[in-house]
Design a binder for these strands. Structure first.
Length: 654
DNA sequence: ATTAGGG
DNA sequence: CCCTAAT
């Protein structure tokens, strides 16, 4: 039995919480690579494993230390990262990861004791509490300060370190390590969403801001007493947000909130021991779905994580943004970052992940956040007995397949695809108040006409009066929020996928497909491998050839035509299966559909003048027979039809 | 799985 | 030939 589900909503379900994106240097421009070996789908599991590993390391370390009596907390420092993330950052990925910004995990082993932990690829610990050199992996990290006095996991948003979060995992909290196996520090993993889980916790989260220059409203001490000293086992998970926390501004991004990219490249992780205080806000930002997840998590692991999330979207090019005091961006490329944190109020009520907002400000700038992108429809087919894990992987594969070919963003205004990239927002109507609700973004696989930069004309041209929109209306809504309930541990992906399309979720949905037929696409290819399922992108222009080969053309020979005509003369034109069996039994490459098609063409050929015919000429004699048979069976069929109906009626009556 | 038709 | 809808 197979479960076929049409993910009608496309992967819109993959929430793309408005998460801040950072300029990530040229990397962003690198064509999206195909997913690497790391199975993204396993990210969560990996994360879990990693965490477990870490915990264990920490514990063992602690115990060993304990024996020695006085001891310093052992720290583990390592970086976990899915490299792919550095280079592959299609907007969609945000969706995939559901805004969980943490893709890179830094586990810090601060103690001189490493508990057998291997050196990290990215971070080198000089020694306990010394400065930490962070590999300049993505020109985002350089040096960290040694303030960390307790174990800390720093999770950096793979997307550009925008969200600072510090999650603390007190040792006293029983962590279920059972699930964490086989992962060693330094292992690379991706956090595809785990954040949702890990970051949802009542415990509260400390925001680690590496950029002291920028004071976002969120900066503050989350955990007044973040250190859990005395136990050396305490672990904090920190989401390191480097720069642009700015966008965090609840209202509109203020100039001061932004800073040039240059700074970004010199990010410093600092004073994790003094996380910015954000607790109060945390609550405000607690999103229903996250909360749910947290509960579950806590229930299961008693591990508390909390998080502070910054979500913003940037649609403007950085330079411009900067010049105008309001643009943030990522190296010119379009990013799904939201320009501002539109969730000023009502955050509690609606889950941020499912709602986006667009607002206009007085300064003629269109500001909004993107909650999610519409993603080309995916069709997935998996056996009922497939595991959730396989489903996740499958979905991930599907998504990555799309991404693998590169994606670009499409902009929809009132359901219409705005293809002219040179249009200004004003011209496109994006800035129109009426269209605010109808602004949508979608990912389009493998575009041929580049220009990923969607929007943005010149902001200064947005002169339309822009009454600030009241918070609520989501521009993009995945409507998934509700689905994330108890199974937070299982779902990331799954929960974010809407199985049933809810038209109301996506205002632009109805037209999206029509507008971009090429972008709709993935179909399940049954039985293609041992895997639960295989997804094949349907983007015909670019991928079908790779995945679903068109059968090689095999012109019918005259003898074949003769056999066909013979069979049809006897059997008629409505029994192709029989024709196949009778005349092409052994010809596996000729399906009854082929025969039917051939007959169709034969009839057509017979009707046209010989000059118009192409290919190997078919004897006129045969064509004549074709016409005769066609005429005959056409009439016969009509009669048969009538008889059949009559018969049916009689039966019914009888 | 077949059949019928449009692309 | 492909793709779909309808059987």
């Amino acid at each position: 039995m197979v479960v076929k589900k049409r993910l009608d909503s496309g992967f819109r379900g993959f929430q793309v919480p408005a998460i801040p994106r950072h300029p990530r240097s040229a990397r962003r421009r690198v064509p999206f690579k195909k997913p690497v070996e790391n199975d993204p789908a396993c990210a969560f599991e990996l994360l879990a494993s990693l965490a477990g590993k870490l915990l264990r390391e920490s514990e063992s370390s602690a115990s060993s230390n304990a024996s020695g009596g006085n001891h310093q907390p052992a720290f583990s420092q390592c970086v976990v990262e899915q490299e792919r993330h550095d280079e592959v950052k299609p907007p969609m990925e945000e969706g995939i990861h559901n805004g969980s910004c943490a893709e890179r995990i830094f586990m810090t082993e601060m103690g001189s004791r490493k508990s057998g932990v291997k050196p990290l690829d990215y971070v080198e610990t000089d020694s306990a509490l010394e400065s930490i050199s962070v590999r300049k992996n993505s020109d985002c990290w350089e040096k960290t300060e040694p303030d960390v006095k307790s174990d800390i996991f720093k999770w950096e948003s793979k997307f550009g370190n925008h969200s600072n979060r510090l999650v603390k995992v007190p040792e006293d909290q029983e962590a279920d390590n059972s699930a964490f196996e086989g992962l060693s520090l330094g292992d690379k993993i991706s956090l595809n969403d785990p954040f949702e889980l890990c970051t949802k916790s009542p415990v509260g989260l400390a925001l680690v801001n590496s950029n002291s220059d920028v004071k976002s409203p969120f900066h503050g001490e989350l955990f007044p007493n973040a250190s859990f000293s005395g136990h050396g086992n305490d672990i904090k998970l920190g989401f390191i947000d480097d720069d642009e926390n700015f966008i965090r501004c609840n209202k509109v991004c203020t100039k001061s909130a932004f800073r040039p990219k240059q700074h970004i490249s010199h990010r410093i992780i600092r004073k994790t021991s003094k996380p910015w205080k954000v607790a109060p806000k945390l609550k405000d930002r607690g999103h229903s779905r996250f909360d749910e997840g947290v509960k579950t998590l806590n229930r299961k692991r008693k591990t508390c994580y909390s998080f502070e999330r910054s979500q913003h979207c940037t649609l403007f090019k950085r330079r411009k943004f900067f010049d105008r005091g309001s643009v943030v961006t990522s190296d010119g490329g379009f990013s799904s970052d939201s320009v501002s944190d539109s969730r000023e109020k009502g955050v509690d009520g609606d889950s941020p992940s499912s709602s986006g907002k667009l607002q206009q400000s007085k300064d003629s700038h269109v500001k909004f956040s993107i909650k999610s992108f519409r993603i080309p429809e995916l069709y997935i087919e998996v056996p009922e007995i497939a595991t959730v894990g396989s489903l996740k992987r499958t979905v991930m594969e599907a998504v990555m397949t799309i991404l693998g070919g590169g994606v670009h963003v499409g902009v929809l205004v009132q359901g219409k695809n705005v293809k002219d990239d040179n249009k200004t927002l004003l011209q496109s109507g994006v800035s129109c108040k009426e269209n605010l609700d109808k602004l949508g973004f979608m990912l389009e696989p493998n575009s041929f006409e580049v220009s990923p930069a969607v929007c943005v004309g010149d902001p200064s041209q947005c002169e339309t009066p822009q009454p600030s929109r009241s918070q609520g209306t989501p521009v993009l809504d995945s409507g998934v929020t509700d689905t994330v309930k108890d199974n937070s541990l299982l779902t990331n992906t799954g929960n974010h996928v809407e199985i049933n399309h809810d038209p109301t979720s996506w205002p632009t949905d109805d037209t999206a497909d029509k507008l971009t037929p090429d972008s709709r696409a993935l179909v399940a290819v049954p039985n293609r491998s041992t895997k639960a399922l295989t997804l094949v992108p349907v983007n015909q222009k670019t991928r079908r050839s790779e995945l679903v080969h068109r059968r090689t053309r095999r012109p019918f020979s005259v003898s074949e035509v003769e056999a066909l005509v013979q069979a049809v003369e006897e059997l008629g034109t409505g029994r192709w299966r029989d024709v196949k069996l009778q005349a092409f039994e052994g010809a596996d490459h000729r399906t009854y559909v082929d025969l039917k098609d051939k007959w169709k063409t034969l009839v057509h050929t017979a009707k046209i003048s010989p000059q118009q015919r192409r290919g190997e000429p078919v004897p006129q004699e045969l064509l004549n027979r074709v016409l005769a048979a066609h005429a005959y069976w056409s009439r016969h069929q009509a009669k048969q039809h009538g008889k059949h109906q009559a018969a049916t009626m009689n039966i019914t009556e009888a």
